[in-house]
Simulated assay, not measured.
Amino acid sequence: MQKSEYQFTGIGIAFTILICWFLHLYFLLHQNLTFNNFYLFVGILIQTHLYTGLFITSHDSIHGVVSPKYPRINRLLGQTATLLFAFNRYSILEKKHHLHHQFVNTEKDPDVHQGNFFIWWFKFMKQYISWQQIIAMAIAYNVLKIWFPMWNLILFWELPAILSTLQLFYFGTYLPHMGIHNNEHHSGTQSKNHLWAFISCYFFGYHYEHHAYPYLPWWQLPKAKN
């Protein structure tokens, strides 16, 4: 499968995710919390999915595929998405993700820790959470409380970020790499269902395809699956 040549599609998609994340969060933070407002529950799920989109954007930036022709824009968009996702550090994600591809499912792989789901998730999260990130979140939370209600921040800013880490881990790491896979990329893949693949994790359930064609952005992975 050949590397696709495109100039602005990836940039447009990245901007769309960033703008939707911001506008939807802004909308939710201004809502009155009432149990008869069913959309608030749906809104948490949508915001979770948009958070996942932020991470996928930063991931594609690490692979240089948000904007292959404009590396500075590619990196800037990735760094912005990473920062908005709970003040993650792009440099750490970049280093460890390349190690994951280079040493997948070995002792040098920072993402794969075969065994119990929760122990694996804990070890996975330990690789990426830093004390600087926790301090930044605490400062941002206390500043944002000046303008927005506390429970709105917890439910619509913090909770979706936590749920998104579970979504990313379960569909993008645990399921694809759980157990032994007798192929060169030590990866499994979801059955072909593009709608579910997008909803679950922006097509990253097609994980063997991602390892086989790391130069494809997330929105082109269905082509690899086809």
Score class of each variant (00 low, 15 high):
K3H: 09
S4Q: 11
Q7K: 14
T9F: 03
I11H: 04
F15R: 01
F15T: 03
T16R: 04
L18D: 05
I19V: 15
I19M: 08
C20I: 10
L23K: 07
H24F: 14
H24K: 10
H24Y: 15
L25H: 01
F27L: 13
L28G: 00
H30F: 09
Q31C: 05
N32L: 10
L33K: 00
T34L: 11
F41I: 07
G43A: 03
I44W: 00
I46Q: 08
Q47W: 04
T52Y: 04
L54K: 03
I56T: 08
S58V: 02
D60V: 08
D60M: 09
D60T: 08
S61N: 05
S61T: 03
I62R: 04
H63I: 06
G64Y: 04
G64V: 04
P68M: 07
P68A: 07
Y70R: 12
L77I: 08
G78D: 05
G78S: 12
Q79S: 10
L83D: 01
F87D: 04
N88M: 13
R89N: 12
R89G: 07
Y90V: 00
I92V: 15
I92E: 13
H97W: 10
H98C: 12
H100W: 07
Q102K: 15
Q102H: 15
N105F: 12
K108I: 08
H113I: 05
Q114W: 12
F117T: 00
F117G: 04
F117E: 07
F118N: 06
I119E: 09
I119G: 08
W120A: 14
W121Q: 07
F122I: 07
K123W: 04
F124P: 00
M125N: 14
M125Q: 14
K126H: 14
Y128A: 11
S130N: 11
Q132Y: 15
Q133F: 00
I134S: 10
A136H: 01
M137Y: 02
M137P: 00
A138P: 09
N142S: 12
K145L: 09
K145P: 01
I146L: 12
W147L: 06
F148W: 07
F148P: 02
M150L: 13
M150F: 13
I154E: 11
L155V: 08
F156D: 04
W157E: 02
W157S: 05
E158R: 10
E158P: 03
E158L: 15
L159N: 06
A161W: 00
I162Q: 07
T165G: 09
T165H: 10
L166D: 03
Q167A: 14
Q167W: 11
Q167K: 15
F169K: 02
F171M: 05
G172R: 00
T173F: 14
T173G: 13
I180H: 13
H181P: 13
N182A: 10
E184H: 10
H185K: 09
H186G: 06
G188E: 01
T189I: 07
T189S: 14
Q190D: 14
S191Q: 13
F198Y: 05
S200N: 12
Y202E: 05
Y202P: 04
F203N: 02
F204T: 03
G205F: 01
H207G: 06
E209K: 02
H211S: 11
P214Q: 09
W219I: 12
W219L: 10
L221M: 05
P222I: 02
N226V: 13
N226W: 08
